[in-house]
Write a protein that binds this DNA or RNA. Sequence first.
DNA 1: GCCAACGTTGGC
DNA 2: GCCAACGTTGGC
Length: 152
Amino acid sequence: MNYWLMKSEPDTFSIDDLASRPQQTEPWDGVRNYQACNMMRDDMKLGDLVFFYHSNCTEAGIVGMMEVVKEGYPDCSAFDPDDKHFDPKSDATKPRWMRVDVRYVRKLARTISLKELKTKAELTDFTLVKNGNRLSIIPVSQAQWDFILSLE
DNA sequence: GCCAACGTTGGC
DNA sequence: GCCAACGTTGGC
């Protein structure tokens, strides 16, 4: 069982959007970064738990939790010329990008902000708090997961 | 809206 | 395979 963190801009897709979806489930598509896609393809497994992180907003931070309900499969939004994330170099015979499906688990009692996470000695190795980090999917260790939840 | 950091592209 | 140019991310 692995733990993860996935970023989303709340203006585009927030935790409340996820909670109001049918079955509270959503395909996590539009990721166009190889490192992140490889993790969805190879490492994210059914039942893995994921922090939902709001980025590029007033209070960037961890707002909730979700779980992987479908393992990596081709992101067909890359095949659709009308889609914002269309990629002409990806096609159905050789999909370049992957996605997983995630289901809402719960919101945290409060937002654990990036600012706060950066102050914790326990998290100095956590990729999220490293300067200039741009990965939208980040692995979280068991220890990091437990520690972050203890802050709630 | 600014800008630093970083990933990707493409010429050579 | 190097690296400059360019585009994007995301905190502030």
